[in-house]
Design a protein around this nucleic acid. Sequence first.
DNA 1: CTGAAAGCGCTTACAG
DNA 2: CTGAAAGCGCTTACAG
Lengths: 340, 340
Amino acid sequence: MTKTARSRTSGRATLADVAARAGVATMTASRAISHPDQVSAALRARVQQAVADLAYVPNRAARALATAESNVIVVLVPSLSNAVFTAVLAGIQDALEADGYQILIGNTRYSDAEEEKLLGIYLQSHPAGILLSGLTHSEKVTQLLASSNLPVVSMMDLASDPNRYSVGFSQLQAGYTMTRYLIDKGRKRIGFMGAQLDERTLKRAEGYRKAMQEAGLYDPQLETMVSDPSTIALGAELLGRMLAVTPDCDAIFCCNDDLAHGAIYQCQRRGIAVPERLAICGFNDLPASAWMNPSVTTIGTPRYRVGYEAASLLRAIIKGTVPAQTRIDLGFTLMARESA
Amino acid sequence: MTKTARSRTSGRATLADVAARAGVATMTASRAISHPDQVSAALRARVQQAVADLAYVPNRAARALATAESNVIVVLVPSLSNAVFTAVLAGIQDALEADGYQILIGNTRYSDAEEEKLLGIYLQSHPAGILLSGLTHSEKVTQLLASSNLPVVSMMDLASDPNRYSVGFSQLQAGYTMTRYLIDKGRKRIGFMGAQLDERTLKRAEGYRKAMQEAGLYDPQLETMVSDPSTIALGAELLGRMLAVTPDCDAIFCCNDDLAHGAIYQCQRRGIAVPERLAICGFNDLPASAWMNPSVTTIGTPRYRVGYEAASLLRAIIKGTVPAQTRIDLGFTLMARESA
DNA sequence: CTGAAAGCGCTTACAG
DNA sequence: CTGAAAGCGCTTACAG
C-alpha cells in the first residue's frame, strides 16, 4: 500500500491526500464523498479507492467548522444507574440515530454544579438542540440556555409555561392517584417515603399531601424524607425508621420502586405481613416489581416513550417544523398488584 | 448590552468579537482565556468582561482543528440498561472528568454492526483513545482500530495477548469457581442457564464446563442457552424449561443475577424450596441479591473499578507513560449467601 | 461534471 | 506582556 504524504499535524490522511491519490481536486474529492450523486461514476470509484487505500477518516471538527452545521444533540440526565433514565436514553437513541445525529450524554448526578459544568462544556460543541431532565434548573443553567438560543425540550414532567417544550406526565397527579388508591383501599395511616429529593420526588410528595389533606388524613409525622440516593438498602433502612416514628402506619407509598423493594424485603425479614399489616407501593414499575412475591403495586411510567417523543419533538423543532403542541402528556398507569 | 458584530455563519460571538470589544488582538484574547497566567491582570479582566458581555462560548471544533489535539475519549459498551455497564461508566467518568476529557458514550446493543457503525462515526471526532468492552470484535472493527493507530483498552476480561491492554478479571475462572463451589456443596446435577450469549457469558459457561468435566458431572442436557437479552422474566421462563428437560437438576448457575432473580421468584411461585430442593446462584452481585429472601449466592465483580482502572490506564498511555503492566486483573469475589 | 479560492474560528511559534 | 500571519481540514457558492 503506497502512502501519499500525510499532514504533519495530525499524522492522518486528509482530504487533500485522498484527492492527490485519486488525481482530482480537493473539492471534487469532497463532493465525491459527501454528495456521491453529483459526480461521475468513474470519479466516484477512484475517490472511493483512494479513501480505502489511505484508510481516510474525515475530520469532523473541520467539517463542523466549515459548515457551521451541527448534528450533535446534548442530553443531560441526573443518573445512569437509575433504570428510568437508561430507558429514556434508549428512546432518544432510537428516535435520533437514523438521522445521523451524534448524541452527547451527560450525567449530572443530581447536581446543579455538575449540570452547569457539563452544559458549559457541551455548548462548545455547538449542539443543534438540548434534551434536559426536569423543569427546574439553576439560574446559571437557565442563563446559559437562554443566551445559547438553542431549542430545548424538558423531559419527565409537564411545564406549566406553554412557551416551554416538555414531554412527560404529571408527577404530582401520579402521586395523588397512588395515594387516593391507598385511601380507597381503606388505609388511614399512609406514610410517604422519599429519597434523593429531586424535583420528581418532591412533586410526588406534593400529590401525596394533597390527597391526604383532602381526606383529612394528613400527618407530617408520616413523611420520611432523606436526600440520600434511593436504593434497596435505603428502603430497608427507612422502613425501620418509619415504623419507629409511626408504629400505627398501615401503608407506605415509596417514591420509587427501589425503596419499595427494600421495604418489602425488610418486612419479610421482620415477619411483617405485606399487604395485610402494611401495604407497600412504589413508583416506576421496574421489572422486578411484577415478579417479586408479593408483586408490587406501583405506577407504570412511559420512560422509553418520554425519551422517544422528546427527541422526536426536538428534531422537529430543529428542522423548523412548528409542533402542534408544546407539551406532550404521555400519562401513567396505576399497576395494582399484591403488595397494596 | 451592546453587541459587537457577530460572524455571519454561526450567528454566535467569536473570539474576534471578544477581542474587538476588549480592544486587543485576537490572539491575545485567546491567550487571556486559555492561558490566563501569561497575561497581565488588567488585560485578563477586560477580556473576561468582554466574554461575559457577549456570552461568548468557544467553538470546540475550531479549537480541535487548530490544535490537532483531542480530549475526547470514546467508550463503547454493549448495553446501558445493564447495571454492570452503568457502573463501568461511572468509574470511567470519575477517572477522567478531572482531566477535562470529553467522553463519547456509544451503546452497541450487543451488535457487531452497531459497533462498527458507532466506531466509524466516533473516529471522525479524532479521539485520543478508546475504551472497548470485551476482547472479541468483528474484523471490520479490528481493522478500523488498527488503522486508527489509537490506544485501546479492553474492559471486562483479560487479554491473553500481552500486547493488548486489558482490565478486568477472568470470566472463565469466575465461572469455574462458582461451579466448584456448588460441586463442593454436594450438588451433582448442576445446570447452567445462559442468555444473551455474549463473550462473557460464553466464557463463564466454559468455566462451568471445565469444572463439571473435571468432576465427571458434565451433561450437555444441563445447559440452557438462549440468545435473548437476559431479564428477570427470562429467568423465570428458563427455570421452567430447565426443569422440564432435567427434572433431577439440583442446582442452577445463572450467567447473571437477573436470571437468578427470575428463577428464584418462579421457584417461590411453584413452591420449589431454594436452596433445599434447588440451589440457585447468579453472577455480578446486583444490589437486590443481598436483600432478596433468600439472599442470592453470586459472584461479586469489580465493575466500577474496571471502568476506573481502564480509564486510568488509557490516560497514562495517552500521556505517553509506559504502564507497568498491560493487563490488570481486578479479580472477583464469591458471595456465598442463602440461595446456594 | 469538475476546479480555484476563500473562509469557518481558533492557536501557535516568532517577534517586538 | 502583547501582536501579525499562517495554518488546521473541510465545504461552499461561482465559474468553466
